[in-house]
Design a protein around this nucleic acid. Structure first.
Lengths: 123, 123
DNA sequence: TGAACATATGAACAGATGCTCATATGTTCA
DNA sequence: TGAACATATGAGCATCTGTTCATATGTTCA
């Protein structure tokens, strides 16, 4: 921030003057830049049907990579790349069992978020 | 579907044979292709910090396009493009009042989904 | 140890995405 | 009606994303 904040003039309508207090109030309650960014990054992870499908599979049962590939009819590589993203977002956990690696859901937020999403689109 | 479903052989581990019943069960409970796609599309909309910021502003108050541009220090065009996406996803409603167009949150799922997302990243 | 298996990862490429710029559409008011 | 204002939209461009392909890492067992 600071000198980088060279607030270029932004257009505003006449009504804007009236609502200026609301704009200030809004900015006061807006989360930090970092949190907004992290939130968007989190939802980006849900924003791909391959990853959504992986999560649905894991709703039923923890599973190894190759079973996931089989279940979704995709290559091991593609699944592995996506699992990496899901893991970085802490949506899944994994543990090694011999040669295989077992992935599972990380926490309940995943179910809640997807459930709310499903409710929304069914309207 | 049909002839397009030329199930290319997918690799599978030895353990996979054991879990084959689980894979079948999973596929039975998997939502339709369309729903999975729509779900991903919905979350994609949440997956951009500009749109997240717009939603946070609308949490506080319904608002016209130029006030949103002012609040977020972005151009009217950029905001308008994003509002279009939010509207297509039925996350916001709008109504015209004279020259201005007022946008507001569409329903409670938006708050719930974002609230769950915030909970998740604060761990 | 070395072969076979399971998973991870880097490079590369095609397709999607978000912003800007220019301009069109829609509304009010003199 | 025409000027001014508010918003919407299409084209273009730079960037990001998901898959594939090749290959590396890690594990088991003979």
């Amino acid at each position: 921030m600071g000198e980088k904040m060279a607030l270029h003039d932004v257009e505003h309508c006449d009504a804007c003057q009236v609502h200026k207090d609301v704009v200030s109030a809004v900015n006061a309650r807006m989360p930090e830049e970092d949190e907004l960014y992290d939130l968007a990054e989190l939802f980006k992870v849900f924003g791909d049907s391959t990853r959504i499908r992986i999560l649905f599979v894991l709703f039923e049962s923890e599973m190894c990579v190759c079973d996931l590939a089989e279940a979704l009819q995709m290559t091991q590589s593609a699944i592995s790349h996506q699992l990496r993203i899901l893991k970085q977002a802490k949506l899944v956990n994994n543990r090694r069992e011999g040669k295989t690696v077992i992935y599972s859901l990380a926490d309940g937020h995943v179910r809640t978020i997807i459930a709310q999403g499903r409710e929304h689109i069914e309207e």
